[in-house]
Design a protein around this nucleic acid. Sequence first.
DNA 1: TCAATAATCAAGTTTTAACTTCACTATTAA
DNA 2: TTAATAGTGAAGTTAAAACTTGATTATTGA
Lengths: 102, 102
Amino acid sequence: MTPERVFQALGDATRRDMMERLTDTALSVSALAAPYDMTLTAVGQHLAILEAAGLIKTEKIGRVRSCAINPAGLEVLEQWTRARRPLWQRRLDNLGDMLDET
Amino acid sequence: MTPERVFQALGDATRRDMMERLTDTALSVSALAAPYDMTLTAVGQHLAILEAAGLIKTEKIGRVRSCAINPAGLEVLEQWTRARRPLWQRRLDNLGDMLDET
DNA sequence: TCAATAATCAAGTTTTAACTTCACTATTAA
DNA sequence: TTAATAGTGAAGTTAAAACTTGATTATTGA
C-alpha cells in the first residue's frame, strides 16, 4: 500500500484493464483471465501485484478466488496527489522562475 | 502525457525523488544528478522519461538545461483518479457483493 | 584560444519485470 | 470415486527497464 507499489501496479496496461473490469462486479481468477492471451499463472501474478498494492482484495471460497476492487490503493494515490498539487500548481502560476539557482 | 507514462514514470523511486527536489526550485541536469550514485547519462534518461510523461518541462539555455515541474502530468493523474473514485468507492459502501457472477 | 564544464549520443551490459512450463493440491459435479 | 475444474508453486525463459562506457558537441571562463 505504498505509493511505489501503487504506481508500479498501475503502470501496466493489463493490470489497469483488470481494474476497469472489476469496477462493477467482482470476478474470479479465471473470469479475469479470459480476455487475455496469457496463462492463468501469469494472471495470478498480476493479481498478487494488485493485491500487494492495495488495489484489490481477494477471498478464496471453495476452489474459487473472488477478486474485487479495494479502494485503499486509490486512496494512497489521492493522498499522494493531494499533498503535491498545491506546491506544483503554483509553479505554473508565477512563471519566469525557470532560471533560479541552477 | 498518457496515464501509462505517468504511472510508469512515478513507479521509480529516483524519479519520484527528482520530482520532490523540483518542488520549490528549478534545477539543472547536473544539480539534479548530484545526490545520486549514477552517471549523468542515466539521469538524463530519467529526465527524458519524466518529460515524456508531462511531469517536467525543460529548457536548454547555453549549455545548461533547466528542469522544472510541469503540472500537466499531475493533472492526468488527478483526472484518472477522479473518474474512478466514485465507482470504486461504492464497492466499499455496499459490501457483501463479493460473490456476484463469478 | 583552449581547457574545463554541461550535456548528449550510440551501443553496450545488468537487473528487474513479465511471462511460460509443468507438476501439483484442493474442490466439486457427474 | 473419479474426472473435470480452479487455482497455486517452483523454476526457468523472454522482454523491458535501468544503468554504464566511451565517445562527441557546444558553451563558457580564464
